[in-house]
């Protein structure tokens, strides 16, 4: 069986398990929670600020942080332990004592312009009706909230956002669309999100942003990252058309 190690950071306990020969996952329970997410972001930033030898990258999710590493470099490093897990757990123990809830977390707020309804948001009217709202009320509620990026997953640059007003909860489409245009803003259940690439999808589409959510040529290809805050700003079709056009292709 997997050896499970228990640790504490910022008064929140977590378990460590091995995902692969080159990755460990730190698991903080199994629920969506702003405080847990904040603690994970905190630890994530601490690891990146003081990485161990052999560190490659991290993947933050709702209640996990996965640390990827080069096993050879970790094993030949001076960290204490007989194998990669022991060495990295030792490093995490030391690191976690330095993190408290007062540790300053760097968060970025990103405003995303959205042209709601019309051809860009074919499901807006139906979802407004379903929720007994006018389309304007629907747009106002959607653009009033400050959303939190819990994680990036599914396809490059896709952000799982938390904080959708419950008046806007909408079921998935019974029949997924074969193509959803990149930049489309959608709702599925309690989630809202933006499609970064042209992909098939079953979300209700309520608008589109002219911003590029993922650009493989940028230093940070994904516009959003875990821990960021997001605000949607309604724009007109004329505003939309004044943004520079972009294509998915390289």
């Amino acid at each position: 069986m997997n050896e499970i190690t228990q640790l504490v950071v910022d008064q929140i306990g977590f378990e460590v398990y091995q995902l692969s020969e080159s990755a460990l996952t730190l698991e903080f329970g199994n629920k969506i929670d702003v405080e847990i997410s904040r603690t994970i972001s905190n630890l994530n930033q601490a690891i990146q600020a003081q990485p161990f030898i052999g560190y490659r990258t991290t993947v933050q999710a709702y209640c996990t942080l996965t640390v990827f590493y080069d096993p050879i470099l970790v094993l030949t490093s001076k960290l204490n332990g007989n194998n990669c897990v022991e060495k990295i757990v030792g490093y995490l123990k030391l690191l976690s004592t330095k993190i408290t809830s007062t540790t300053k977390l760097i968060t970025t707020t990103i405003t995303i312009p959205v042209c709601y309804g019309g051809d860009f948001g074919p499901d807006l009217e139906e979802m407004a009706t379903l929720n007994q709202l006018t389309t304007n009320e629907f747009i106002a509620l959607h653009s009033a909230a400050k959303y939190k990026v819990y994680m990036i997953g599914f396809v490059p640059g896709f952000a799982y956002l938390g904080g959708l007003n419950e008046k806007l909860f909408s079921p998935r489409k019974a029949q997924p669309r074969s193509t959803i245009v990149s930049g489309s803003v959608g709702i599925a259940g309690r989630q809202t999100g933006i499609y970064p690439l042209n992909t098939p999808g079953g979300w209700q589409i309520i608008g589109r942003t002219p911003n590029k959510l993922f650009d493989s040529k940028c230093i940070q290809p994904s516009l959003l990252k875990a821990g960021d805050s997001v605000i949607f700003k309604p724009i007109t079709i004329d505003d939309f058309n004044s943004y520079p056009k972009h294509s998915d292709a390289d």
């Binding site: 995902l19 692969s20 080159s22 990755a23 996952t25 698991e27 199994n30 629920k31 969506i32 993947v59 999710a61 709702y62 209640c63 996990t64 996965t66 994680m151 990036i152 997953g153 599914f154 396809v155 799982y160």
Partner: peptide, 30 residues
């Protein structure tokens, strides 16, 4: 389960009980 990191080589079990072995181009989370 809430989505979390997966990697090539991870064997997932779908809702119906079938196995999926993730390979090189797999999603980063599942």
């Amino acid at each position: 389960l809430l989505s979390t990191a997966v990697a090539p080589g991870t064997i997932q079990v779908t809702g119906s009980g079938n196995l999926i072995l993730l390979m090189a181009d797999c999603q980063t989370t599942g």
